[in-house]
């Protein structure tokens, strides 16, 4: 069950990132609700997941879902570049951030 909570936390982060773009397009209450709701959901479920899953693992998976999710949302929802070099560089950052969280 903790892993499901962790996935919800990761998805919450992506919702928060969606909210960032939403706020840029329309500064209204619902945009801010998506922004804060997403990140709040994310933090709450991350801390619940951390009761069972070791902290470094939980952080690493959470970061991974957030980064990959935001990149995919950018490409498929907001029409951002699908250039292979962009994907490569984002993957490098992803690999490094996940690695650092696993070994710290």
């Amino acid at each position: 069950m903790a892993w499901i909570y962790l996935i919800i936390a990761g998805v919450g982060e992506v919702v928060g990132v969606l909210g960032i773009n939403q706020v840029n397009q329309k500064k209204n209450t619902s945009s801010f609700l998506v922004l804060f709701g997403g990140f709040l959901l994310s933090f709450v479920f991350l801390s619940i997941a951390m009761e069972t899953i070791p902290m470094s693992t939980a952080y690493a998976v959470w970061t991974g879902i957030g980064t990959v999710g935001s990149a995919l949302v950018g490409m498929f929802v907001f029409g951002e570049s699908k250039n292979w070099r962009r994907i490569l560089f984002i993957s490098m950052i992803l690999l490094s951030a996940v690695g650092l969280k696993l070994i710290s």
Binding site: T67, A71, G74, I90, A97, L100
Partner: peptide, 15 residues
């Protein structure tokens, strides 16, 4: 772009 920005932001924060 939001995907790029978020990756860089996370990366700087982590490192």
């Amino acid at each position: 772009p939001v995907g790029t920005t978020y990756a860089v932001f996370t990366g700087i924060g982590t490192a």
